[in-house]
Structures are given as structure tokens and as C-alpha cells.
Amino acid sequence: MKIAIGCDEAAFQLKEIIKEYLIQRGEDVEDFGVYDTKPVLYPDIAVKVSKSILEGKNERGILLCGTGIGMAITANKVPGIRAAVCHDPYSAERARKSNNVQIMTLGARVVGTELAKTLVDIWLKSDFAGGNSTEKVNRINEYEKEFLNNCK
């Protein structure tokens, strides 16, 4: 699977660990930064990862910051992207199965290294379940299109 990954300076160390873990799993990883602990504007990273998914360059994305919240907010501003903060196994699974998210976000100040690896595993092996969730995800997409059309 082709996976985009990106973070801010608060999550640099965890991103490096998760990136190496993904590579060891045999995943194809594209790193959108950051590459050190120098402060950055994390929305720039979130948008780059989101665009790579929309353009089909990557299938899924993992974004990390201090809490995961800012990255999720930013990614969700990109039309066509659904992102969710995943801090426990159930949310990681349901993010995919119920909401068909393309991007999981993690908080480096919230989850430890081993839990982060577990959440990544759960999220990557989960697929959209469809069923009753299909109508809900379709409604999200309809609202997104409606808002975009009304803003023109």
C-alpha cells in the first residue's frame, strides 16, 4: 500500500518511528516532512498529504502532531478528504469501517509508540464496511459538494 506520512515538529520523533515501522511492514511510504524539530505550520504538511491522496499518488495518509486534532481539522478542510483522530483501537477501526477515512491522525503527546503502532496496524487492515454506513458517507459527500457549490 502507498502511504503518505507527515507531521509537525511536536511529532517528528513518532513520525520517524512509524515511518520505519511501515517500511519494515513492506509498505511504500512517502514522507512529506517535517525532517527535524524546527517549528513549522502544520497545515502546510496536512494539505500536501491530502493532495497526494486526492491525486492518487498515495492510497492513505497518516498525519501526526501534538494531539492529532489540528492535523485532522486541516485535512478535513480539503474537499474530498475524510480524516479522523485515532487514539484507541476502536476509533482506529471505525474510522475506516464506518467513515471510510483516507487519513488517520495521531497525537504524539497522547499516544505512546507501541499504541501508535497498534493503531496503525488496525487502521491499515480495516476496510470500509459499507452497509448502513454507505448512506452516511454519501450524505457527507453531498453536503461537501453543496457547500462548495454555494461558495462559488
Rank of each mutant, 00 (worst) to 15 (best):
P79R: 13
E55Q: 15
K57Y: 08
C7E: 03
F128C: 02
L54F: 07
V34T: 11
Y90E: 12
G6I: 02
V101H: 01
P89R: 00
V110P: 01
L54S: 08
E20N: 14
K136G: 02
V85F: 00
N132R: 10
V101M: 04
K117D: 15
I69Y: 10
I122T: 02
I69C: 15
K117S: 13
C7F: 03
K97V: 08
I23C: 11
V78Q: 07
S91H: 02
I62N: 03
A11M: 09
N76P: 07
G107Q: 05
M71S: 11
K125Q: 13
E146S: 13
C151P: 13
T113Y: 08
K152Q: 10
D88G: 08
T113A: 14
T134D: 04
L54K: 14
E59Q: 09
L124G: 05
K2Y: 05
A129M: 08
P79L: 15
F12E: 04
R25F: 04
I17F: 06
G112Y: 08
L41H: 13
I140F: 11
G131P: 00
V78Y: 02
K2G: 12
A11W: 04
N138R: 05
Y42A: 09
A4L: 07
L22W: 09
N76E: 06
A116K: 01
G56T: 09
R139W: 06
G6W: 00
S91D: 04
T118R: 14
G68A: 10
L148W: 11
T105Y: 01
I53K: 02
E30C: 11
E20I: 12
W123G: 00
N141E: 14
R94K: 07
G112T: 04
A108F: 04
L41I: 08
C65Y: 03
P79M: 10
S126T: 06
I18N: 01
E114P: 06
